[in-house]
Simulated scan of single mutants.
Amino acid sequence: MASSLLAGERLVRALGPGGELEREQLPRKLRAQLEAALGKKHAGSANITDPRRLVSFRLIRDLHQHLRERNSRLYLHELLEGSEVYYPEIVKPPRNPELVARLEKIKIQLANEEYKRITRNVTCQDAQCGGTLSDLGKQVRSVKALVITIFNFIITVAAAFVCTYLGSQYIFTEMASRVLAALIVASVVGLAELYVMVRAMEGELGEL
């Protein structure tokens, strides 16, 4: 935050011998402070002969207040002609080594957790990698359950067809009517079985 001015030549000349501020009868303390401030070169300047000097805002306010009290015809903005606001360089404090070490440890931990999360569903090819046998067992059980479900579906539809065909001989005398009735009943049973299978598969996918 700025708190000083880089005094220009106008202010330096006004405070010097025979300058405009000499007849303003500045208080001894204020003049001494201004002369001391203008006698110090700007520490951030690369050129050691740089005539710019640092003057705090407090001294500028005191000078302005004095000129107002004397009803002086010398205005502050005229004195500050060529002056600039001085912004000191912000020096960043050194980081705590312990804090840096903790942050690095946390970054590594988060990276490992993210890696584990990404590779959680990747099948491990190493026989020594944990979880391989269990994953293989799950896959075998899934295939076995699918084969049993398909086999039951075929048996159920075929049994419905045969039962309807044999039972319809007491109702229909023609072969075509018996076959048609058996096909209708088998289709209804097959659709019902498919509905149950789809609902069961949706439940299993939701648990994954």
Rank of each mutant, 00 (worst) to 15 (best):
S83F: 04
S72D: 02
R52N: 03
F151K: 12
D62E: 15
R95H: 09
K105C: 04
A2W: 06
P97K: 10
D126V: 03
S3G: 14
M201C: 04
V122C: 08
L183W: 00
M1R: 07
G131E: 10
C129Y: 14
Y115P: 00
I184F: 10
M175W: 13
V140A: 12
F151L: 11
C124A: 13
V157A: 15
R31C: 09
L136A: 11
G18T: 02
G167E: 04
Q125E: 13
H77T: 05
A159C: 11
A43W: 03
R141M: 09
E84G: 00
V122H: 05
V147M: 10
G16L: 04
A158V: 08
P88K: 08
L103K: 15
A101N: 10
N152D: 11
K107H: 14
L136S: 04
E202M: 12
E98F: 14
C129F: 15
I184R: 08
Q65N: 09
H77I: 04
E22M: 07
R52Y: 04
M197P: 00
V179L: 11
E174W: 09
A7C: 07
T123Q: 14
Y195K: 10
V196A: 12
A192Q: 12
Q65T: 09
V91F: 05
P51L: 05
A192W: 12
A145L: 02
L79G: 01
R117A: 14
E193K: 06
C124I: 07
L54M: 08
P27G: 03
T49K: 05
S134V: 15
G19I: 01
Q25H: 04
L194S: 09
A160K: 01
L21K: 03
K92G: 06
A200P: 00
S177Y: 04
A7E: 05
L76A: 09
Q33K: 07
L63S: 05
R199V: 06
V140L: 15
K40H: 11
L103S: 12
D126F: 11
F172Q: 00
L110W: 03
A32N: 08
P94I: 09
S177D: 12
R53V: 03
E204T: 05
T132K: 15
K41L: 10
K41C: 06
I106R: 15
Q128N: 15
Q169H: 06
E202G: 04
D126K: 13
N96Y: 07
V85T: 08
P97I: 15
R178K: 10
D62M: 05
T173I: 10
R13F: 03
P93G: 07
L5E: 00
I106P: 00
T164Y: 02
A37E: 07
Y165D: 01
G130D: 15
S45C: 05
R68M: 10
Y87C: 06
E69Y: 03
V157E: 11
Y86R: 04
L166S: 09
Y195Q: 08
A14D: 01
R73E: 13
P93M: 08
V143S: 14
A159F: 08
Q125K: 15
Y87P: 00
R120Y: 14
R102G: 04
F153G: 00
K144H: 10
G130H: 15
Q125S: 13
A181T: 04
R178D: 00
E193Y: 07
R199T: 05
S177P: 01
R28N: 05
L133I: 13
